[in-house]
């Protein structure tokens, strides 16, 4: 029983998209489903050539926030979307009726339709794959060359992520709507 979250030292992101590739490989994401399960947002460089402000060019890796108060879970008519014992927001594809309400309700656009099962899917923090095998890392974290991602148990005060969140300033996306995301961006 853990309470998984992820901290992202996003200023280290170099937009290599290795995480996207690793996620696709690990979780069998459909071909062509680009930027669906996990993606890197790009903030364009400000200024005009040649006076470019290179520092302004940042990358913002993102995926499902595994909200503690998840709108997607609240709106699901069949409990197909649920919190698992590790605090991960999951979709039970047997119960999903593809009403798409969760896709409309998610403030982070983190959900997509898997054409093979015709149900909604999204990031699971590798619950079906790596965590199920007993590992404690996610594919995206494991592969990141600049170590942007730290995945771990938020309830364990000794964990690396707890330590990071204690010592570093961080923000989360759309915190004002009260979804309590578990993706933390370190500043």
């Amino acid at each position: 029983m853990a309470n998984y979250g992820m901290a992202l030292d996003y200023k280290n992101c170099i937009n290599c998209k290795a995480c996207e590739v690793a996620c696709k490989e690990e979780n069998g994401v459909q071909l062509g489903a680009d930027k669906h399960r996990i993606w890197v947002g790009v903030k364009e460089i400000e200024g005009e050539w040649p006076l470019l402000d290179i520092i302004s060019n940042t990358f913002l890796p993102s995926q499902c926030q595994h909200c503690e108060n998840a709108p997607c879970q609240e709106v699901c008519p069949t409990h197909a979307t649920y919190y698992d014992e590790n605090g991960v927001v999951r979709v039970d594809s047997d119960k999903c009726i593809l009403c798409s309400y969760c896709m409309v309700a998610c403030p982070y656009d983190a959900r997509y339709v898997d054409d093979r099962t015709m149900t909604v899917d999204k990031c699971t923090f590798c619950s079906d794959t790596r965590l199920a095998r007993g590992e404690t890392t996610t594919a995206c974290q494991n592969t990141c060359p600049t170590k942007v991602r730290t995945f771990g148990d938020l309830d364990d005060p000794e964990s690396e992520i707890s330590e990071l969140l204690r010592t570093r300033e961080h923000f989360s996306l759309k915190a004002h709507i009260g979804t309590k995301p578990k993706l933390f961006y370190l500043t």
Binding site: W39, G41, V42, L60, S62, P107, Y108, D109, A110, K174
Partner: peptide, 8 residues
Amino acid sequence: MQTMKIRE
């Protein structure tokens, strides 16, 4: 929605 569209 912010995370995808605005910085994609």
